[in-house]
Design a protein around this nucleic acid. Structure first.
Ligand SMILES: [Mn+2]
Ligand SMILES: [Mn+2]
Ligand SMILES: [Mn+2]
Ligand SMILES: [Mn+2]
Lengths: 219, 219
DNA sequence: ATTAATTTTTAGCCTAGACTAAAAATTAAT
DNA sequence: ATTAATTTTTAGTCTAGGCTAAAAATTAAT
């Protein structure tokens, strides 16, 4: 069966929302991420249920079926491979690629994405540290911690980000925080949970709890 | 102003039809190439005229304005650069890339296409010998002949094709006809205008007038 | 247990871009 | 110059995917 651009975007967002929780997903939460109104979301959920890509009972929320998950994963695979291409081959910065990948992820061609994968030497993660699903829809659970969970005086490695908004990524770049950086938590402010970090030999830097929450690390 | 996918496809097709002739373009000819009905074309022509991309008077046909031409050329530029990418970098054959490029040509990003251009080392022609318009919308007139126009016993070089349908390109490949091949016209059959060609040291091959018409050569 | 607030769904409307059938204009043939 | 054939346009309809406003269901607060 064939998927429209709108359907693909819904499936992707429902996937993201399902990832976090075992609960069914609410209409409103989808409306927020798609920038649509709840009424429009209800409409689409009925269509997606009709096609067998979600299980949906009115007023009770929605979940992806196995098929729905696979469609979502194939779009995420395309998104992340294109992001690698844009950074590794075309020389974009990590904060510049998301919007373009949002378009490229909808290009329909099985051979294309596999040739691209091979051209990029089968990368395992994208420029933001996110894992790239395999052709079979397998995606490794990397089990990273949020930097906000790391204890005082512990040292960790920056493995990814939980958000790919350009302003956030630009902030990290300005702070010299990039994938692979070694970070030591030298101070945790109990008042606002802001964090002070030492990177290599540099002067410590301060980041808010909001920023720390969106940085993924391995201890 | 922003262009929809449908509008871009219309502009591209009107461009192709204008190229040949100084006459205004008929509604029916557009309908044929877009695979739409004439009534739908009329609808769209009114919208395109409204936006200033074509000049259109009912019953009198249509032409691109300068702005319309530039939009069309930017799409053609993207199409051809992506085709080069698919062949040169991903290893596709020349008969496999058109459909994918039809999708990729609608990706919207000024920086993307220029970075791609640079990554590909600023190619001047695509895998079918078609010239790639510059960023400013300049496209060299290459002045090639159709192989069907070449005189008996003349030798010429295969520079391009006038059609990028997969079956046609596969036929050429099977006949060992690729860009750059040296061709000697050793026989022209007056009955059906079919042609016999000698390529290098091979045995002569026979091609129909229909095929010869769609091969572009330099004498 | 009611009532109030919130969330979700339904009903009805809109636009883009297709379609068919009928009308109008143009072109070709007597 | 009429008439016939062809082309093009108009009028009206449809679907996808949005929207608002109102109704219904669920959840929270008395
Ligand atoms: Mn992204
Ligand atoms: Mn990413
Ligand atoms: Mn092509
Ligand atoms: Mn081409």
């Amino acid at each position: 069966m064939t998927t429209s651009l709108a359907e693909e975007n819904y499936l992707k967002i429902i996937y993201r929302l399902c990832e976090g929780t075992k609960e069914d997903i609410s209409t409103n939460s989808i409306a927020e991420l798609t920038n649509n109104k709840a009424a429009s979301v209800t409409d689409m959920l009925q269509k997606l249920a009709e096609k067998g890509w979600v299980t949906y009972q009115k007023y009770q929320g929605v979940r992806l079926t196995k098929i729905g998950q696979n469609i979502a994963l194939s779009i995420i695979r395309k998104h992340r491979l294109w992001e690698v291409f844009l950074v590794e081959k075309l020389g974009y910065n990590w904060d510049e690629v998301h919007e373009i990948a949002e378009q490229l992820e909808h290009i329909e061609s099985e051979t294309l994405i596999n040739k691209l994968d091979s051209f990029l030497d089968f990368p395992k993660i994208d420029p933001h540290g996110d894992p790239i699903p395999s052709q079979e829809g397998e995606i490794p659970e990397l089990g990273y911690l949020h930097l906000s969970e790391v204890k005082l005086n512990e040292t960790c490695t920056l493995m990814g980000v939980a958000k790919d908004s350009a302003v956030f990524l630009q902030l990290l770049t300005k702070l010299n925080l990039s994938l692979g950086a070694r970070l030591e938590v030298v101070e945790i402010n109990t008042f606002d949970r802001s964090v002070s970090l030492k990177i290599a030999e540099q002067e410590p830097i301060f980041i808010s709890h909001e920023v720390a929450k969106n940085i993924l690390v391995k201890v």
